[in-house]
Design a protein around this nucleic acid. Structure first.
Lengths: 207, 207
DNA sequence: TAGATTGTTAATCGATTAACAATC
DNA sequence: TAGATTGTTAATCGATTAACAATC
């Protein structure tokens, strides 16, 4: 067990979780660090080191029980406890995320979607009816909201964040294409443009 | 100048590029590693090390010329030379990417969008008319396509990739939620679900 | 010239890999 | 018991930070 787990390890956990989930769906009950290392393109040593940051989930001479390991990693990530989330911005990206991301399997429950565009208000996305953004403060006072997904344009987002933080939102999944940080809240800033440029670089390298 | 530049450095380049672009838009002509370090939350030393992987772009006693540095990083990333791209999958995510990503500023030009769903065929996304996926092979034989954006469901994507690779596609921006690799092509596998789980972890840590 | 800031080398820190005793 | 594979320590490798001479 290790109290200071590095970000590099944490970023690998969701990937382990995906591969273990697949084994589970295929009714595979045990897996060794060697099996996993071949599947995932990591070293067996690294895998064992990673898992042992959190305690010994394996059994010498046997390997790891897939189901136990899967659940342990889920617990470490915190996704077995649900937090509430709202989405601000119901454009194409909002629709894509709302309809296709399985929030409940990742520790969140979507409870509200907001937009300023009359064209989408009243529409249903991922089972939630889109509400006008001017009801946002009201909603936040009446409902406990842990996390906000930011899929609105940059300008609108910038003003919004402070309001949301002041009303108790503690986490942000931010697609606004700018890095945001605020005291007392955590931000997962997603930069799809950066990802695309990295691909462009890799393609030249590969030529 | 350094021949073996680490992935850690490369992943920071798009971020430098964004910050420099912002300085440029604000008509700021020079920047020191210290200025940048404060803006970006890195050490000045790391910034200088990063830039010096590719050669000396600065001037002692002065700093860096923003425009020169911006263009140099663009060149390193390869985004000042355009490669062709198609998108397979014109659902909400495809629409979001097609309409909102500025491909040309990131080294790509979108020249075709394909889907199997009759409902979207003929619609225009990001200036491109959606075509039926059964015309894909034809299109690839008539047009040189460097990169494919995979925004179709998992099942459809799996079969598609080998076809695309065999027809000369050399890069993939993959949103299908599975890791893909193939000889002779590079993949940027985007896992939004992993990003969301990392946020969930960070929120518990922050409590 | 004096001050500022780079480019670069050396020191430190952290992450990955190797090795092997423990043990199922 | 013999074989397999973990948990863990030690060795290596790589990335970040510190320091400072070079020089604009």
């Amino acid at each position: 067990m290790n109290n200071k787990v590095s970000m590099a390890v944490i970023r690998r956990l969701p990937r382990y979780y995906r591969y273990l989930g697949e084994l589970l769906r295929n009714d595979i009950q045990k897996v060794s660090s060697k099996d996993l290392s071949e599947k995932m393109g990591l070293t067996a040593s690294q895998i064992r080191q990673d898992f042992n940051c959190f305690g010994g989930f394996g059994q010498q001479g046997y390997g790891y029980n897939v189901e136990i390991l899967y659940n342990e990693i889920g617990d470490i990530l915190g996704i077995n406890t649900i937090k509430t989330a709202i989405m601000v911005g119901a454009g194409n990206l909002g629709k894509a995320l709302g309809n296709h991301i399985n929030f409940e399997k990742r520790g969140f429950k979507l409870i509200g979607i907001f937009d300023v565009n009359e064209g989408v208000i009243g529409k249903v996305i991922g089972g939630i009816t889109v509400t006008h953004a001017n009801e946002l403060s009201d909603f936040l006072e009446k409902n406990h909201v842990d996390m906000a997904i930011l899929t609105a344009p940059k300008v609108e987002t910038e003003n919004l964040v402070d309001l949301l933080v002041s009303l108790g939102v503690k986490g942000f999944w931010n697609f606004s294409n700018m890095d945001i940080t605020r005291q007392g809240a955590v931000f997962e800033n997603v930069h799809l443009g950066d990802s695309l440029m990295t691909l462009r670089y890799a393609m030249n390298k590969n030529e």
